[in-house]
Design a binder for these strands. Sequence first.
DNA 1: TATTGTTATACTCTATAACTATA
DNA 2: TATAGTTATAGAGTATAACAATA
Lengths: 169, 169
Amino acid sequence: MAENAAHTGATPEGRPARPDLAAMIVPLGRALTAAEQPVLDAHGLTMWAYTVLLHLEETPIRTQAALAGAIRADKTRIIAVLDDLEARGLIHRQPDPEDRRARLLSLTTEGRRLRDAVQSAIQQGEERLLARLPAADRAAFLRSLQELSALPEVAPRKPGHATDRKDPH
Amino acid sequence: MAENAAHTGATPEGRPARPDLAAMIVPLGRALTAAEQPVLDAHGLTMWAYTVLLHLEETPIRTQAALAGAIRADKTRIIAVLDDLEARGLIHRQPDPEDRRARLLSLTTEGRRLRDAVQSAIQQGEERLLARLPAADRAAFLRSLQELSALPEVAPRKPGHATDRKDPH
DNA sequence: TATTGTTATACTCTATAACTATA
DNA sequence: TATAGTTATAGAGTATAACAATA
């Protein structure tokens, strides 16, 4: 009896010991997103634009399609975003001399500066939330989150992987 | 120098010690939602329908608007959901004798049975993810998640609060 | 006149398909 | 012929506004 309950800690009556993970995490994500919005608004960035700035920081990207894949966006969805960021001088976007179909993408100095300012403000807000947790729990929470984010079913695809090809051969 | 960095553990160069919380939590929520989908499909439930079944379990609800508020949905958005659940005999939905404008909502026995079966399957799937974490981190992670979910800016409004009224008097 | 639930409409976001240029 | 990027179109999901019943 109650073999499954042994996994989830459900009571003998069958009610679970905790809410569904998704039922806690999705609203938390919404709240964090809502908290970011005023910061983004203050700097004239959409969530997509900020996401682009974040992902260009690490490594310059060789095609827009690769960027779109990395941030789990449709390639057509980021075009207007890139148009705006380029017009404001926050990113470079130049045809690859070796294959002029592709567009090399990278941050400008100004783009990096804005990105750092926004991220700093956002993380300060997040720290106020995390302050509600005991120090040990908080460290374990962040560690767990980074661990789970790295799982293949959670992490966005990195460009250049074999699985990016339509034909697996 | 780097006064803000002291809060977030940023390096002296200004790069943060961790990704943004939202950048980890939102994709994790998406992955959990995607993992739920096959289970819901197998039982003919949409995410909204499952959410309704979850929230009716605890306490019967006296108006559809209150239910909508509790699950952060527009009141017009859940009508088709309730139509379907009622037609399938999963919920009761009867006019309140004391105010026949309102609809009393509660689970049927069959609705409770389905809800328990689906939730059990979903949480079993989630346990496989959590199994990647050390036991201590996992406990702290769940504890932290429940703590943060209970914060007023995260938790959905409970019906009957003073803040539900448009006029604060 | 105000409120509950419902229906009809409009709007936003996103994906799909068609087109241009390069290869 | 195939690919990167772009534009135009259509679809899904959601919110807004108008309506009917009840108080």
